[in-house]
Design a protein around this nucleic acid. Structure first.
Lengths: 341, 341
DNA sequence: ACTCATCTCAGTACCGGTATCGGTACCAGT
DNA sequence: ACTGGTACCGATACCGGTACTGAGATGAGT
């Protein structure tokens, strides 16, 4: 096995010192044009591609941005990741992703592991980390941006929206449309604290109007279209009087829509199905579901830009809470909020 | 800003040497039980979490596995990533993801960047890298597993299936069902070489039966349900005689199904829609599309396991081509291949 | 001619760990 | 008591870069 090329090899091939080679490759000044060319050429010739390990260790800084998300199976998070990736493109920083499976223990473990790579910054999903994890983040001494939520107290800064308010607002909108007999279907509620907040906001709004939830079904599994189908079938079988179902997200609502299409139940006339996220896919659906549209890419981009800002200004800007309000789309035929029926 | 804790701090706190602390934390033998406890406790007390940079540099090995995928917006790749993550869980290895956007230049760049972190192994999507990228991989001296394809010559090893055969096989199956008037709709064909291979296999099979493609529409954008809708509307408007449409993937086929539901076109009776991947979501659809089901998670897991194997045996096992044949599901009412009509 | 600033380059000391190797303590066997 | 083996521990030399410091060369100013 041939030995890996090092900077010394490049320097030797170019006939300069290690130091000059290092500077030339990094594009620093204080190197003559002639030597820059010689070094660049030598590096290309012998196929040298650097060693971030050594560089980062030596310079006590790295170009890694850690990004921690709870899941990959919900397309929302890959979209956030795309946003981060795009915002970081061309900046010299590179995202590193970690997945927690909605498990706080795993989250702590992943964060420790990431911190041990001395990242330049961290983007973490959610505001509800346990104390030990919070401490870990607070002591890291690097910019931390928490995303997808703003109901709570960020370690440092956050970009997101209020899930409580999102649940509240869509309830208000549905009530304004004349809906009165509500059901709820959710997945993974014990771990997905943000879904739980939406549900909380939703129920609070109902209560404020003196409306009681008629029925609720949940499943511990991760949300999926198929489960949404099943839960909807259950709900409508036991409570055929429902005129609106709120789901913990769009995947479930989509399953609900598909069930209704197959069962010949008219949506949204007889029953309104309301989800959360505003997935692109629902644009293509044969039927309309209500939803709160969130801007995932933008949140990812904004978070990455905040990190870059902090890094540029060489200080951690605390307390910057950027709120990106979701927009409600009811997908109903009636315009301007006029009541149906 | 308080200084980061180092191993020396731990050693001092535990009253042992740096070396003993290092060994204790890594669980090596040659350390007394008492000292292991002291060091562990000291590390916990002062909140030490190690420095992978220094560790990897010093030991000339790292616990990173690079994973390069073309896209995050196609749920298939996050699923592959999940498979890799799961297979790596508890092994001490950590995946690092990169996204190429189907761009070979970006792919090369990302691979260089990854290699500069001295990963223990690499998982790369596809077999059709340009020569310079191939060279980069071949010279890396670490196990490389290429995934999602087996039509071609792997640098080292691969886990996947033949897209050409997949296209061919589903064409055969559809012809056996009595379909004769075929259309094709595809996205991103100029960059997605695997989709192009499926199309090639599909057309070859048609030709072998003396069948000519009646119509074809493509779009340069990434595939999505909405675009699938549009392309299908175009195809069926200009060629209402089609009795089968083959799509470059399930996203498009789903859009096609939704269009047909809205347009009152019966699927699969009047027109069969065939996609590729076997997404979980189609299980929930109000209607059936044909597809080739691929096992993404399993491919990710298998690739990760192959890397771990190579690492354990301390040699790179070349030429291991694992083929995971997709299974065709036509979603038709007729059983046993009896012709329709 | 001499001083001084500027540009270029090289030497040295790290960064924070780990591999290696040489030692010390302790015990069993003879 | 002496030897040999085993368990444990620490000093030292790195890994491959970069920060820092200082030196030589060159040119301008006087």
């Amino acid at each position: 096995m041939k030995k890996r090329k090092t900077l010394k090899d490049v320097a030797a091939a170019a006939g300069v010192s290690k130091m000059t080679a290092s500077r030339a490759l990094r594009g620093e000044k204080d190197v003559s044009r002639a030597n820059v060319d010689k070094v660049r050429q030598a590096a290309r010739d012998i196929g040298y591609y650097g060693n971030h390990l050594a560089a980062s260790l030596s310079s006590a800084r790295s170009d890694l941005i850690g990004v921690v998300v709870p899941s990959l199976s919900n397309i929302v998070f890959p979209q956030v990741m795309s946003g981060v990736t795009d915002a970081l493109a061309g900046t010299g920083f590179q995202p590193v992703f970690g997945v927690t499976d909605y498990d706080t223990g795993k989250e702590n473990e992943i964060l420790r592991s990431m911190l041990s790579w001395r990242p330049a910054g961290l983007i973490v999903t959610g505001l509800d980390q346990p104390d030990d994890t919070r401490m870990l983040l607070a002591d890291a001494g690097i910019p931390i941006v928490q995303i997808m939520d703003c109901d709570g107290d960020p370690v440092d800064a956050c970009v997101g929206f209020s899930h409580t308010k999102a649940g509240h607002d869509i309830a208000e909108a549905l009530i304004a449309e004349g809906r009165t007999r509500f059901g709820y279907a959710g997945c993974n509620m014990h771990k997905d604290t943000r879904a739980a907040k939406r549900k909380k906001g939703f129920l609070e709004a109902l209560k404020a109007h003196g409306i009681e939830l008629k029925a609720m079904v949940t499943d511990v599994a991760l949300s999926s279209v198929v489960i949404g189908r099943d839960l909807t079938a259950q709900l409508l079988a036991s409570h055929p009087e429902l005129d609106c179902i709120y789901y913990s997200n769009d995947d479930l609502a989509a399953g609900g829509l598909f069930h209704c299409i197959d069962a010949g139940i008219s949506v949204p006339e007889r029953v309104v199905l309301a989800g959360f996220n505003g997935l692109d896919i629902i644009e293509g659906f044969p039927g309309k579901i209500a939803t709160s549209r969130t801007s995932r890419r933008e949140i990812g981009e904004a978070a990455a830009k905040m990190i870059l800002d902090s890094l540029k200004n060489d200080k951690i800007e605390s307390g910057r809470n950027v709120v990106v309000q979701p927009t409600i789309s009811l997908g109903l035929l009636s315009k301007g909020g006029q009541a149906v029926g």
